[in-house]
Every structure is written in C-alpha cells, then in structure tokens.
C-alpha cells in the first residue's frame, strides 16, 4: 500500500478538463488530440482514458473508454494525448463531432500498461482495426529501447486499417492484411503468425484488437512458447474498477479461474492466462 490516503490502483489517475486540440478524419476513424497537461508523463502505452460524452444534459450516463494512442509534449500546450475513435455508437459519434477548443471531462490515465523489456528484444506488434492505435505509441517506446519492432495490422477492409505515416517511422516492418483484399495481403493477421514466430525469431508479441483475434493469437503464441501481452476489449461501465461489468476469466496464481476486471487488472493482460474458452460462458 502506497500510503494511507492513496490507493495503489490507478495511482496517477485524475479527473480533468481536457481541451480538444485537433480532430481529423483518418480513414473510418477520427484522430483526436487532447491536452492533458502533466498527466501525459504518467501515461504508458496500453493505458486508457474514460471520457464523459453527450454534454451535461446527456442521456448517455456512462463514460466511454479509449486506448491512448500516443502521448507527446507540445511547447504551446504541454502534455497531449492522441485518441483514435471509431464513430460507431452515439457516444463515440458525439466525441467525433467535437471541434477544436471543445472541453472534455476525462479520467486519465487508467489501467495496466504493456510491459517494456529492459533489454533490446525482437517484438511483434499485432493490431486489429483501431486496435492498432496504442501499438504506435508502444512501437516508439520499444524502438527507443533498441528493440526490433515488426508490426502486422489487419481489418475487414482497408478503411478500417489505422496506420498513420508518422507512426510507421518507429517500426522495422509493417504488413497489412484485409479480409476483402482491399489493402495489403488478403487474409487475417494470424495467417503469417506461425511462420513469423517459428524458431524463436520473436521474443514477445503485443496485441490489441477484437477478442476473437486475441484468442487466436494466444493459441499460436502458447504453442510456440512466446510471451503474449494483449490489450483486451470488454464493455466497461465505470473504467475505474467499481462496477464489475468488464470481467475476463483468467487463471490465477493458485491455478483456479478468477474473474478479473479488464479496467484495473487490464486492459493489458497476459494472453496465456486469459481463459479464452470461458469468455462470455456461464460459470458455476
């Protein structure tokens, strides 16, 4: 325990007013930059933000969680944070309609972060759809540590691939897969995976995307005995660990199945410990 009044959970999280600095459309997504002042320095790749949506009189009462894509420091605004938002529901559409200068009620930074190796390793980053967002921030950090960073991105169609020019600078190689063949190779991110990680050519896999994709990657990673850290996506009501809606079945240290909160014990989890076959299944 850190101190009497300080819970160790989400130690740096604060509720702040964040200003929208820019909001650009990129493919089917919006790239939204917000100012978060000194909280930027505490954000690690994998962490997320929870944003109130719809304004004061909104009927949307729950916050929306978004992965932090990248953080940076700008001379004029101090710490900034970039979010990649798919406008697929009422809340995310509202967020995507916010113009420069709008102010947002944001709780940040939340959740676990990707573990960063202390020595240079060969890392493989796999993203599905907008799940690639946090991987570019991660790639920057890994590259800074001298890691080799290969990236595979996949989606159903090209408009759902998020791969900004500036992000590509941090990766050694980038391969894209779409199910309809509209960009890159036709197929899924898991298609080349077995081969890529065979004979110990990859030390660690980092992934983010739909649960089905993470489960498929986990299976292959376990067979090849490669460490796999994945950022899971389960619907969250609170994002701060109090509601128990966001649970993921995991194998605990004692060997039993435990229901872990993906907002606090995640979103980054050890893919090998997640009981993928039990996700969404009734339990005794």
């Amino acid at each position: 325990m850190v101190g009497l009044n300080m819970s160790p959970i989400n130690r740096h999280a604060r509720q702040i007013e964040a200003v929208v600095l820019s909001n650009k459309r990129v493919g089917q997504y919006h790239q939204i930059m917000i100012s978060v002042h000194d909280l930027a320095q505490h954000a690690r790749p994998g962490n997320f933000v929870a944003i109130a949506v719809g304004g004061d009189s909104s009927a949307l009462i729950l916050r929306r969680a978004f992965a932090i894509s990248r953080v940076s420091h700008r001379a004029d605004y101090g710490g900034t944070m970039e979010l990649i938002v798919a406008p697929h529901g009422a809340g995310s559409r509202w967020l995507c309609s916010q113009m420069d200068g709008a102010s947002l009620d944001v709780v940040v930074p939340l959740g676990t972060a990707f573990g960063i190796p202390t020595t240079p390793v060969r890392a493989l980053l796999i993203g599905g759809g907008y799940g690639s967002a946090p991987l570019f921030g991660l790639a920057e950090v890994l590259k800074g540590r001298g890691c080799r960073v290969d990236m595979i991105l996949g989606a159903s169609t090209s408009g759902k691939i998020y791969a900004p020019q500036e992000g590509k600078r941090s990766v050694t190689s980038l391969n894209i897969y779409t199910e309809d063949g509209s960009a890159g190779a036709t197929g899924k991110v898991t298609d080349p995976l077995r081969e890529m990680i065979a004979d110990g050519s990859v030390d660690v896999i980092y992934s983010c995307g739909p649960m089905g994709m993470l489960a498929a990657i986990s299976k292959i990673a376990v067979e090849a005995n490669v460490v796999h850290q994945c950022a899971v996506e389960e619907s969250m009501a609170c994002g701060i660990g109090v509601c128990m809606t966001c649970i993921i079945p995991m194998r605990t240290d004692s060997g039993e199945v435990g229901m872990m909160r993906s907002c606090i014990e995640g979103p980054v989890m050890d893919g090998e410990k997640v009981q993928w076959n039990l996700v969404g299944k009734p339990h005794a």
């Binding site: 009462i61 729950l62 619907s235 649970i247 009734p282």
Partner: peptide, 23 residues
C-alpha cells in the same frame, strides 16, 4: 462467487442494465 457471464451491462436511455450476479 464468479458471477454471471459477459456481457454484463447494456447502456439504456438515461440508465443501464447490469447482470453481475453478485461476483
């Protein structure tokens, strides 16, 4: 208690449904 399977929540107009199952 492990509680109920996910999804455990659905947002509704000015409200939400939860089925945690007393985890």
């Amino acid at each position: 208690r492990l509680g109920r399977p996910t999804p455990r929540m659905a947002e509704t107009p000015s409200g939400m449904l939860n089925s945690i199952g007393l985890q």
